[in-house]
Simulated assay, not measured.
Amino acid sequence: MKRVHKKEDIVKVGLDIVLSKGFNATGVEAILKKANIPKGSFYNFFSSKEDFALEIIDQFFADRVEILQPIFNSESLPPLARIKKSFETIMSVFEDNDCSKGCLLGNLGLEMSDHFEKVRQRLEQSLQSWTTELSGLLLRAQKEQTIPADMDVEMLAENLISSFQGALLRSKVKKSTEPLKNFIHLYFDVFLSRREGQ
């Protein structure tokens, strides 16, 4: 078996395990076994398991940005369509994983926010960056008069993410994308749908 020596490789291996099993259920030994590395190598790169958690959050968020940024930047789509497509893309990844794993930010938020302050802060930073991205697109939609001028775009962006995370949790329990599809339909085909004459 090929040995993994790079820190980035260890992070990617660990991220996959944590997404599948949760952070507390993932022992360092499980990461070492899958990565085929000696125990000393882990602690050469990470001062603690909490430090490792920060690294996998950063990796997950970087992976998510790589997938979503081209959608957010797509000038061929109007702003609301870009946001809708971004959520559909995440849903598609979830579906490809047999309605398991979900979003690391939501998973660790539930599991670790009350116990690891540095992890909570890093999760908040990641979620705030996501909120800022959506807020910018919602502001453009507002300027194009596709959403009301008096709508607080930052509040809406945060609510979209919160509602999506809730729908994702429900989808994990239900083992179905139905709650996610309902979220997308309600927000983008009903709540934010522009109706002529209104």
Rank of each mutant, 00 (worst) to 15 (best):
F164D: 02
K172A: 07
R82W: 04
I161N: 03
Q69A: 13
G27D: 12
D16F: 00
R194I: 10
G197C: 14
W130K: 03
E29W: 02
R170D: 14
V28P: 00
T177F: 01
T177Y: 01
T177C: 04
L77F: 08
K7T: 10
L123R: 03
E29D: 13
S86A: 15
S86Y: 02
F87T: 03
E117V: 11
M91W: 00
S100C: 01
S193V: 03
A62C: 10
L138I: 04
A149Q: 14
Q198V: 09
Q165P: 01
G40S: 13
G22K: 06
E196M: 12
L139P: 00
V93W: 01
L192N: 10
M1I: 07
L108M: 15
K21D: 12
I90M: 14
E178C: 03
V173R: 12
R140Q: 15
I67R: 13
G136M: 04
F116M: 14
K175Y: 05
S135F: 05
Q128I: 09
P179T: 08
F60L: 00
M155C: 08
Y43G: 10
E50I: 11
S92F: 07
L32T: 07
R140E: 14
R122P: 00
K7I: 06
Q128Y: 10
I56S: 02
V28S: 02
S47P: 06
S48N: 09
F164Q: 02
N73T: 09
G136L: 07
K172H: 05
K7R: 15
Q59S: 15
R122S: 05
S135R: 13
D152H: 12
S135V: 07
L104Y: 03
Q145M: 09
L110I: 10
G27N: 14
K6G: 10
F52I: 05
G22C: 08
S126R: 03
N73S: 13
G197S: 12
K175C: 01
A25S: 13
A81E: 15
G197W: 09
Y187H: 15
T177V: 13
Q125S: 10
K6C: 04
K101M: 09
V153R: 06
K143H: 09
D63I: 05
A167L: 08
R64Q: 07
R3Y: 13
M1D: 14
R194E: 14
A149P: 03
E196Y: 11
F72M: 12
A149T: 11
W130F: 14
N36V: 00
Q128V: 07
I161H: 02
M1H: 11
F61H: 11
S20C: 12
N24K: 11
R140Y: 02
Q142E: 09
D152Y: 09
Q165V: 05
N107C: 02
D96S: 14
D189M: 02
I161K: 01
V173H: 10
V65F: 06
S163K: 09
D58I: 02
N182E: 15
F191P: 00
M112K: 06
D150S: 09
L80S: 00
K175V: 04
V153D: 09
Y43P: 09
V13G: 01
D63C: 08
I56F: 07
Q128W: 06
F72G: 06
H185V: 13
Q121A: 05
L169G: 07
L80Y: 03
N44W: 11
A25C: 05
F46M: 08
E158L: 07
F45C: 02
T146P: 03
M155D: 11
H5Y: 15
C99L: 04
I17R: 06
L127E: 11
Y187T: 05
T132S: 13
E144P: 03
S41A: 13
